[in-house]
Amino acid sequence: MSKQPSRREILSAASVGIAAAAIPGIASARTRQETTVTAMEKEFAKPLSDEAKKLLAESLKGIETARKDRLKTKLPENTEPCFTYIPSTREVRAR
């Protein structure tokens, strides 16, 4: 999945970020999410409505918060996820 922001988006975000420096934290975080929304929208078949963009930015913030929260639970070293790959001679796994 390609979701790298373009140079223009990075520069645009940086200039907004400078302007928003008076409101540290929240302002720069919103800018990052808005940049991601703009980049994501280009990968969709149709542009998002303004309302959808606003809610998407909020949802992205939620995902960032979840990421920070999960780091509070340190998992023991060298543990495995709950699935393992099972080798098979079949061409496609059944579904």
Partner: peptide
């Protein structure tokens, strides 16, 4: 719409 799209991230 927002939730599914954000989940891509």
């Amino acid at each position: 719409v927002a939730g599914f799209a954000a989940a891509l991230e």
